[in-house]
């Protein structure tokens, strides 16, 4: 059940997208996401989708994987679509039943929103699919390095993020294991109302918390034993250097953004 969630997962690979400098990838993804909201007609959004398609193709992540990543948010997408369909009252009325009205404007907006949300999810998952969590936090740390003077330092925050990310799969595994163990003792986690189901989780969460604390102590001891003392004087194993492909990616995204502004300008506003 938990294993089905692929958002935030990393799929190792050797594609051009995998090899991009994580800092560049992170910044470009952020810009890309902002520009998904800048688009306000089908032409500019279409260009975003095409660009995204190109990135997906280059990354060699299978369409199946991407579809599975979308699965958990299908409900949200449908909800948005239905709301937009029924409550936008612009354009021509094409169907009516009691209190329900369907306008052409509703259909346009609904489909626009669906494409926008899908693009948003696929774009952000492309970052995590092709970049290992350690690289992402490394990139964040370096991008935030101007804030070094802050108390505790950027490094401490980045280290906490790295550790938190690192332990997500471990905790999921632990959760599955304890769930199985309690199910084997007849714990019923699948039936009953919300209150009953929540109560049924107690036998899972108590052991899970205890295990997490135990792990945290063990990790802290292990780090201290290896003389971990924070940022000062530490060098890096992985040096990040921008390569030609990073500049090509930057150029591509800048061109796409310029085109989007032009398309927005020439084709007018839909939403």
């Amino acid at each position: 059940m938990v294993k089905d969630i692929t958002i935030g997962q990393y799929f190792p690979g050797r594609s051009v997208i995998h090899k991009l400098d994580p800092r560049m990838k992170l910044v470009l993804t952020l810009f890309f996401i902002v520009f998904i909201f800048v688009c306000h007609n089908f032409w500019s959004l279409g260009l975003m989708v095409v660009t995204l398609g190109l990135v997906v193709a280059l990354s060699r992540i299978s369409i199946k994987t991407i579809l599975r990543g979308i699965k958990p948010v299908v409900i949200i997408i449908l909800f948005t679509a239905v709301l937009n369909l029924l409550y936008i009252r612009t354009g021509d009325l094409i169907w009516e039943w009691k209190f329900l009205h369907l306008y052409t404007g509703g259909i346009y907006t609904a489909s626009f929103m669906v494409v926008r949300i899908l693009a948003l999810i696929v774009a952000s998952s492309m970052l995590t699919y092709t970049t290992s969590p350690t690289l992402i936090t490394d990139a964040i740390e370096r991008l935030l390095s101007p804030l070094k003077f802050m108390r505790g330092g950027v490094h401490t925050i980045a280290m906490m993020m790295t550790i938190a990310l690192r332990f997500i799969p471990t905790l999921i595994e632990e959760f599955d294991k304890i769930t199985s163990a309690q199910k084997a003792r007849g714990a019923d986690l699948e039936t009953g109302n919300i209150l009953e189901r929540t109560r049924a989780l107690i036998p899972v969460f108590i052991p899970l918390f205890i295990t997490s604390f135990r792990r945290a102590y063990e990790l802290a001891y292990a780090m201290e034993c290896r003389c971990y003392h924070g940022y000062e004087g530490r060098t890096r194993m992985r040096q990040m250097k921008l390569e030609a492909r990073d500049y090509v990616a930057l150029l591509l995204i800048v061109v796409v953004m310029a085109a989007i502004i032009l398309l927005n300008h020439f084709f007018g506003k839909l939403v």
Binding site: S180, A181, A187
Partner: peptide
């Protein structure tokens, strides 16, 4: 009974923990 079953204990007392299965 899984590997390292000691990590699945959760009740307040040993009695209650052993009784979890029969209670279910």
């Amino acid at each position: 009974c899984f590997q390292y079953p000691e990590y699945q204990l959760f009740e307040e007392t040993v009695y209650k923990d052993i009784a979890f299965g029969p209670k279910n």
